[in-house]
């Protein structure tokens, strides 16, 4: 006995199916992205069940956002690095130009 409330994986599948037409009309590459977002929902199924939150779509979107957030934070420090590199490249370019100018002279 027990398990009257549908398991979250089933609820998740329902939500996904309810968006069938939306998905169908997406471009192929967007469909793939769509599928990956729902996969994030699956990844966080334990916290979703535990939450006792009655709107599954919220949980699916939050799960996707969490993964995206992690992704962003992972690459955020890179931005500084890229900036430094860009500055260095610019400086090098300047130097090269300078050298060229000198060479031409």
């Amino acid at each position: 006995m027990g398990r009257t409330v549908a398991p979250f994986s089933q609820v998740l599948a329902q939500e996904e199916r309810a968006l069938n037409q939306f998905r169908r009309a997406l471009r192929k590459e967007d469909q793939d992205a769509f599928d990956r977002l729902f996969a994030f929902g699956k990844h966080h199924v334990a916290p979703s069940v535990y939450s006792g939150h009655p709107w599954p779509m919220d949980l699916i979107l939050l799960s996707a956002l969490i993964e995206q957030q992690k992704f962003i934070e992972k690459f955020l420090p890179l931005r500084t690095e890229v900036e430094i590199l860009m500055n260095e490249v610019a400086a090098l370019r300047q130097e090269i130009n300078l050298l060229r100018a000198n060479g031409n002279r």
Binding site: G2, V5, H43, H44, V45, A46
Partner: peptide, 13 residues
């Protein structure tokens, strides 16, 4: 209460 209580063990992915 049914909604809150009717769950199994936590199974992470």
């Amino acid at each position: 209460t049914l909604f809150i209580a009717d769950k199994g063990g936590l199974t992470y992915a």
